[in-house]
Design a binder for these strands. Sequence first.
DNA 1: CCGCTATTGTTGTTGCGTATAACAATCCAG
DNA 2: CTGGATTGTTATACGCAACAACAATAGCGG
Lengths: 136, 136
Amino acid sequence: MHDPLVKHPGYTLRRASGAMTAELTQRLAEHGVRIVDATVLLWISENPQVTASALGRALDIQRANMVPLLKRLEDAGLIERAPIDGKSQGLSLSQEGKKRVPAIEATIEAFEQDLLARIPLQHREHFMPALDALWR
Amino acid sequence: MHDPLVKHPGYTLRRASGAMTAELTQRLAEHGVRIVDATVLLWISENPQVTASALGRALDIQRANMVPLLKRLEDAGLIERAPIDGKSQGLSLSQEGKKRVPAIEATIEAFEQDLLARIPLQHREHFMPALDALWR
DNA sequence: CCGCTATTGTTGTTGCGTATAACAATCCAG
DNA sequence: CTGGATTGTTATACGCAACAACAATAGCGG
């Protein structure tokens, strides 16, 4: 069977991304969070009192899609909202959030390490710069 | 605003993949096909009389999800099915399909070129091998 | 040749991520 | 003070992938 896609960086990029996403999803499931959740939690952890809009802009998530996401994290008791003014609200980790985020962060960190480790040494250092060039 | 994700290859991979996917989606929309459609069309073009199951295995698409996909391509008059035996059917491009696939292929090829061109020269040759290591 | 297992195509349903349009309330700059 | 921009929110839709189940058929071992 002849494979017309082997040499296509676009297709390969999508496949690699899918595979990695699936694996990280599974690893994070043990903490009861999705990838997006973890990403948001990390961001809030590093930037307390961010606004939902600013968070969405930073992670390229539509304001509208932020709503159920944050509600989920709030219902899980991981984040808290505090009104900044009449229309904005600052997001921060709850006590429970602060307790659980480190483990989530460690999981992600371990994943990133494993990911890099799979790339042959001579290509490894070129990986991030190449990817960065594609969207930044 | 501090960004805790800059150095994460996993996150960057997902972002880059998303950005590229969005762009290719838009380019292919002018031909009235989605990315998956185009991928399937190319594969059928290179492997006439493939079976739906084999196609699914090659592209990692569930047999079940193949159904609406192929129906869409058939309704669009791009592919044809011919029974091989009582339970399998061979897929091939229709006349219309053969007429339109080259333009689709050219679009993809141009996209892949543009994608590679965005990667700084010194990293470019390392891109595919690195990606391949992540899922093959 | 028969029977059992594997395969094929299909249906239905679900989840996740993302996109768009619209709206009320609020902020802010001129 | 007013008008335009911003914020959070609702509702809705699309694209892709996943799972379970099923009938029909193929193909192999005995």
